[in-house]
């Protein structure tokens, strides 16, 4: 396996890991958003959705494990690349031309990723922890999932952080989506412009989709009845 170590520790291999784990997370977000949309259909729909996930719990746990490793590799590798890339230019430019020759999204992957990471920790602490670890039996009996989510979406600072993180998630995905294709070596003048458009559309749908929920429940939600 010497060749594999050489591969994943090479500059190209590290890019490849970012793209591979990123692609998995891109697919995960689609499924996550579709599930969350049940929030708009009331407590029964959302609680029912969470209960359905409970039924297939062993499968969900396996997916969660893959998801966790994807996150860990994506974050660990991203930080490592960022540090190494900083070292590649010890003396920086006085005048930086990058605003004119690159997109904001591509330049700010580390910043947007870091904010998403902070959000992720908080997000797991609030929802994942409460749904899974914090007395799950009581939750399962009383179908309180919906109330927990809506409860958090009444806290102004939580909603604010949530929305900011989702905007930056959109930034991150807009670059990450097309970047993954490039890293896999799929760049062709026939379909690359389309990939970039799909990536932007995907990023907007994810950012708007996820951010709409806290905004709706904070400003427009009038209670269960």
């Amino acid at each position: 396996m010497g060749w594999f170590n050489t591969f994943i520790n090479s500059s190209l291999g590290k890019k490849f890991i970012m793209a591979l784990t990123g692609s998995f997370l891109i697919i995960f977000l689609i499924i996550h958003l579709i599930g969350n949309i049940t929030l708009y259909f009331g407590p029964d729909a959302f609680n029912g959705y969470v209960k359905t996930l409970d039924v297939i719990k062993p499968l969900i746990r396996i997916i969660e494990l893959v998801l966790l490793s994807a996150f860990i590799f994506h974050i660990f590798n991203g930080v490592r690349l960022w540090l190494e890339n900083k070292q590649a230019r010890p003396v920086t430019y006085k005048v930086n031309g990058s605003p004119e020759n690159t997109t904001l999204f591509s330049r700010t992957m580390f910043v947007s990723g870091s904010v998403i990471f902070i959000f992720l920790v908080l997000h797991l602490g609030t929802f994942f922890w409460r749904f899974n670890v914090h007395d799950p039996q009581q939750l399962a009996d009383s179908h309180q999932y919906y109330d927990i989510v809506v409860g958090f979406f009444q806290i102004w600072w939580y909603v604010l952080l949530y929305v900011i993180a989702m905007i930056l998630l959109g930034f991150h995905l807009n670059h990450g989506f097309q970047s993954a294709f490039q890293t896999f070596g799929w760049n062709h003048k026939k379909y690359t412009p389309l990939i970039k458009k799909i990536g932007t559309a995907y990023a907007i749908i994810m950012a708007v989709g996820f951010a709409s929920m806290p905004i709706y429940f904070f400003f427009f939600y009038g209670g269960n009845q």
Partner: peptide
């Protein structure tokens, strides 16, 4: 690529500044 990495060049993050310049 082995030599490129050893020399201390950074990794590509697909910003495409290279192509523009």
């Amino acid at each position: 690529i082995k030599v490129m990495d050893e020399l201390g060049f950074g990794s590509c993050t697909n910003t495409y500044a290279c192509e523009a310049e």
